[in-house]
Simulated scan of single mutants.
Amino acid sequence: MKPFRLSLTPSARAVCAGLLFAMAAGAGAAGPYPANPVRMIVPYPPGGPTDIAARMAADELAKSLGVTVVVENKAGAGGMVGADMVARARPDGATLLVNASAHVIYPAIFKEVSFDVIDSFTPVTQLVQVPLTLLVPTSLPVNNVRELIAYIKDHPGKVAFASAGNGGAPHLAGELFKKVAGVNLLHVPYKGSSPALTDLMGGQVQVMFDSMTSSLSFVKAGKLKALAVTTPERSSMLPDVPTMKESGLPSYVLTNWYGLWAPKGTPPALVAQLADALNTRFHSAAITQKLNAIGAEPVISKPEDFSRFVVKEKDSWGAIARDSGATMN
């Protein structure tokens, strides 16, 4: 019996070859994530809003990709120490960065930055967006923004505002408040939100802008007073707290956010795996409920969307920094 031979035209052979290539590529994309374990660097101390967002993302990535994801807190220089570690890491998917919007602020506020906030990283996805909340200790005799402004003016040189560190969104939020409200405040930077909130509750500092993720529980427990939120609309988590616009400062609108980056040169297939995993997991009802409970909203985006977003945010936050005159050594 003669062997069977299938004769195909050149065009048919091309179609078959394309189908085989697509099947192979699809199989590769669906393969196991190669890096195990994965280090997720948080450039701030444990317990702060960035750390909270990172640990939720790490748990979901571990479940989705089937790898061990270890969160490592590498604080220092306003977050630049941890970010620099990721910028210098091998682009093999084994090292990731979760950072706040402070990531795009560095060039505008620090004289020297050891990496390029855009070109030294591969954007993966935006994780969440969070209102900043204007907080004061319960012992401070003010109950709204107008009363706070009057109190600061009546106590010149005696009112200080805390932040989670130099150069971050909470710091710039305070600097913007100084400008638009026409008040003088001493800035006291801390190494993370947790120690700053502790001193705020104790009255060692009198004012703080902080992400709702780390302060909401203290407000609900009656340990801090929330005077306003910085977003355009009120937060569903604190519906009775007005916006800064409603409080007499119509030009004051800010939103903090957190995102995931990989080192520059990370293969697109790995970046897509990470983004797809979080797109799927962070939009689940269970995770959305957990995020809402701490004042955050999931905002998962494709890598190309996040790439455009960070460039736009770099320009926006840079303008706020320059207008405020805030600079760091």
Rank of each mutant, 00 (worst) to 15 (best):
A150R: 08
F306L: 14
Q129M: 03
F177I: 05
F4D: 07
A286H: 00
R322Y: 05
D199I: 01
T280Q: 01
T50R: 12
F309Y: 15
D305P: 09
A77P: 00
L260W: 08
M328T: 02
M40G: 13
Q273E: 03
A173K: 06
L8A: 02
Q129P: 02
A228D: 11
S11G: 06
G265F: 03
L260T: 07
G259E: 15
T213I: 00
A272H: 09
E60D: 10
A196K: 04
P37E: 14
K179F: 11
K314M: 13
P45H: 14
M85N: 14
M208F: 07
V71Q: 06
W257R: 10
P32H: 10
G174T: 05
R13P: 00
N292L: 03
V145I: 05
S211I: 00
N166V: 01
K264R: 15
F306E: 15
V241A: 13
A54N: 14
P34W: 06
F306A: 12
V130M: 14
T125Q: 08
L65R: 02
K153A: 01
L96P: 01
N329F: 07
V128I: 10
K264E: 13
D199V: 01
L291N: 02
V180K: 12
L238M: 13
K290A: 07
A75W: 00
V271N: 09
L132I: 00
G76D: 08
G318W: 03
D119V: 00
G165V: 01
A22I: 08
Q129F: 11
G82S: 12
F115L: 10
N73C: 02
K2Q: 07
T255R: 14
V117R: 09
P263L: 11
A296W: 02
A29D: 13
L132E: 12
V219C: 05
K290R: 11
N292W: 00
D199H: 13
A62S: 13
A29W: 12
K225C: 04
R88E: 13
D210C: 09
S301D: 12
A89T: 03
S64A: 15
G165H: 06
A100D: 13
R234C: 12
K111G: 11
V71I: 00
P91N: 08
S11I: 04
A275N: 04
V180D: 14
K74D: 10
I105S: 12
V311Y: 09
